[in-house]
Simulated assay, not measured.
Amino acid sequence: MQQRQTRDVRLDLFKGVALLIIFVNHVGGNPLAKVTPGRFGPSDSAEIFVFISGYAIALAYGPVLAERGFAACQRKALGRCRQLWAANIATMLASALVVALAVHVAGLPMEASNRLASFAPLFESPATAMAWHLVLMYLPFALDILALYILLVAAAPLFLWSYARFGMAAVAMSVALYLIAQAVPGLMPPNLWEGGWNFSPLAWQCVFFLGASLALAVRSGQVPLPRSPWLLAAALAVVIGMALWKGAASDLGRALTPDDLEVWLPTRTIPWADKDTLGPMRLLHFLALVCVAALLVPRDAAWLNSGPARMLTACGRHSLPVFCVGVVLAIAGTAVLLAGKSLPVVLAVNLGGVAILLVLATVLERRRTRRQPAAQVASPAPSPSGTAVAETH
């Protein structure tokens, strides 16, 4: 029987942190978005979300492929895709309701924010917009990452099968597709709003399947990340170096630099770091962050069992509802900040939204743990090799 790996709490925790940062960044005109980690390097929370989702997919679907075959694995993936597709529709409609209230009740101009304006096609031609949305070709603000996730989950069984059969050749194929996306950046699915997706599936599949590959390598007993001080030093050099580069090239960095030293500052920000095609420097920065996190945060760190850490872990464990509710809250927060952007309002939007997401995740986690004992009684005991990983990606 395929060995099942115990759940790594760090993955859920980092994913939970990423989801909260995504919420803050999605609120239009949010001053706090200027101090999120993505402002200090080319990569941001999107890579964390996609990478850890790929890791979780491999742990959840790898045993299904090994024990029941490719067809069962593909059926499981398509079932998950249906859930994601339904969540995408529900999130869009709930967000559209918030936009309608903001525009037609509160009297806010729709064109005042691209968050609100992205729903204009739905109000102008509802039937056409819904038809395009059902086939993932009309994606208002923030919903393209969920559409990307649907495609990646659907393709995951083929990658897992290829990895089981051909090993690293499957990873090489993923990298080759990434290079094609860099060479031909226009290969992007259409979007009724703004013309195309903000995430190239050909490029972003590389992050997803690198996460899946790491999970498979760890499960097989390989050591993909040696605990080397030299590796940590190199990764930190990349992270710190790019943070300094981006800061020095910013308007604030130039304003704080004496005139006689300004000639030494970079004239442009980090190149080859486009988000839509996941530029090479962006990918390098993210991989360096992965190394730093893996080497500095041990799996058995005591603080991972603290109350705040458990709340963040619950967010990552229940990532789909937290993300969807976060999108709706971000649209609502955008409308609130358009009406007035005083410090108390900004704090209320951000702290209130984060609190709602944490409470939601905590409630969902308590419901899951209450159901777990009954499920364990009804199901066979896990094998001595480990505990099965729940599919909460």
Rank of each mutant, 00 (worst) to 15 (best):
G16H: 01
V27K: 13
G16K: 01
N30A: 09
G29K: 11
P37D: 00
S45R: 04
F40K: 08
A60P: 09
A56N: 14
F23Y: 15
S43I: 02
A58W: 12
G41M: 04
Y55N: 08
G28F: 07
L32E: 09
I21S: 06
A58C: 09
G62H: 12
L19R: 02
S43L: 03
V35D: 07
V17N: 02
V24M: 11
V17L: 15
E47H: 04
K34C: 05
P42R: 05
G62T: 12
G29E: 11
I57S: 13
L19S: 05
L65H: 13
E47F: 03
S43G: 08
V27D: 15
D44S: 04
H26E: 08
P42V: 02
H26K: 07
T36I: 13
L20K: 06
G16A: 02
F23C: 03
S45Q: 14
I22W: 03
I52F: 15
G29I: 13
G62N: 11
G54N: 08
S53E: 02
R39A: 14
G38M: 06
P37K: 00
S45I: 06
T36N: 06
P63A: 06
N25L: 15
A58G: 06
V64Y: 02
A58N: 07
E47V: 02
P37Y: 03
S45Y: 09
L19F: 00
P31M: 10
F51K: 01
N25D: 15
N30E: 13
F40L: 13
F49P: 00
S43V: 02
S53P: 10
A60T: 14
H26D: 14
E47G: 01
N30D: 12
I22F: 06
V17Y: 03
L59K: 10
L65F: 12
L32Y: 15
R39H: 05
R39V: 03
K34F: 13
F23M: 00
A60G: 09
V17S: 09
Y61W: 13
G54H: 05
P37H: 04
S45D: 06
A46F: 11
D44Y: 00
P63H: 11
V50S: 07
R39D: 02
I52V: 15
F51Y: 04
R39N: 12
K34R: 15
Y61H: 10
S45L: 07
G62W: 07
T36E: 14
A33L: 07
A56M: 14
N25Q: 14
V50F: 04
R39C: 08
Y61S: 10
V17R: 02
G54T: 03
A18L: 01
S43Q: 05
V17C: 13
